[in-house]
Design a protein around this nucleic acid. Structure first.
Lengths: 187, 187
DNA sequence: CCTGCAAAAGCAAATGAATTGCTTTTGTGG
DNA sequence: CCACAAAAGCAATTCATTTGCTTTTGCAGG
């Protein structure tokens, strides 16, 4: 999918992409992940399979694209009154969403896409933007707030590793990481 | 693949599994990841495709199994004289191996396997064992050494996150994580 | 507005992977 | 040595994927 940038909004390409993405969404709610096929999506979206094959190449790529969209659709970080509180709340929610069965499936789809169409990077960018939003609010209040990289390394990375390679942690785990991060920063 | 446990060494099952795994290894060296198909592997291994379909179900599962094997095949952690030195050396090597193109492909294959046959968990267990080996040596020398969980959260998680969601970091990054871990432990 | 052009979508045939019922082989336990 | 169960082979069938060609679409220039 290197043509993403070249799609004019409102054109036929955009309409097809939208209806295909929507079709995938509906199917993901209705069918098993493994049972979904490109012809099935094509039928649901009202396009011919070859259109999908030509635009996305393989199922994984399409699923990956749809997954990033869902990743993006998160609500903005809550404002609890302090940077640390915001980060704790955000980490809890992150653990919960990404660690859930649908969240995990989403992440798998994003990572599994062969041509690594930059979808994983896109997720990281979205995550960073959310952290920076919290950080900006904290700065506006005159608080010290850890660097985005430090939050990624101290909170996001460990959470994602547990989810992918061990078992989904609980909200407490997220709070603990934030606590350790603040302990380290302070020293 | 829930039959892994039930394979008797030396039996026919074991032989088939070995020749299929070996065939995948040879093909991975010779062909593009995307061009490899089950019939191709079957031909290379000298078995019929249906055997592979019945035992692994889908290509991804088989590739995932082969990938863990390669993950396991790492050399034991070097002994540099101190726990911290060992951990730094280990982190550097981990970054290098996992962040390389073949390493990344391997990890993708492991994570992508639908039925999450426990292969990702297996990797984590292997990683933990290596960390514990370093820790045991450190303890034997009378040094303080961080908890395995702390190393996972402070070093392994962040590295893996960068590799999967951003871009492969360099060896310096690994050393930095170890330094931060020790700084935090000390305080 | 109309017309031409390029890009994308549809169609349909052909290719080849996945699935499955049935048969044969293999190795272990009696 | 024999019987039995598990796994592998075989082959026919189904269905996903690929591809050449035709049709539609929407934008640009006249």
């Amino acid at each position: 999918m290197e043509l993403r940038g070249g799609i004019r909004p409102g054109g036929r390409s955009a309409r097809v992409q939208a209806s295909v993405h929507a079709a995938v969404g509906r199917l993901l709610a209705r069918e098993t992940r493994a049972s979904i096929t490109i012809p099935m999506i094509a039928a649901e979206a009202g396009v011919t399979p070859s259109t999908i094959y030509r635009r996305w190449g393989e199922l994984q790529e399409l699923l990956s694209d749809v997954a990033v969209e869902r990743f993006r659709a998160d609500t903005p970080p809550a404002d609890t009154g302090s940077g640390r509180g915001d980060l704790e709340a955000w980490a809890e929610q992150y653990v919960e969403e990404m660690g859930s069965a649908p969240g995990l499936a989403m992440i798998r789809d994003i990572i599994a896409a062969q041509s690594g169409s930059g979808n994983a990077t896109r997720c990281c960018t979205i995550t960073r933007a959310q952290i920076e939003e919290i950080g900006a609010r904290a700065s506006a209040r005159g608080e010290r707030f850890p660097d985005t990289d430090a939050v990624i390394d101290g909170v996001v990375g460990p959470i994602m590793y547990r989810i992918l390679f061990w078992e989904s942690p609980d909200a407490e785990y997220g709070r603990g990481l934030v606590a350790r991060l603040y302990a380290g920063e302070a020293g």
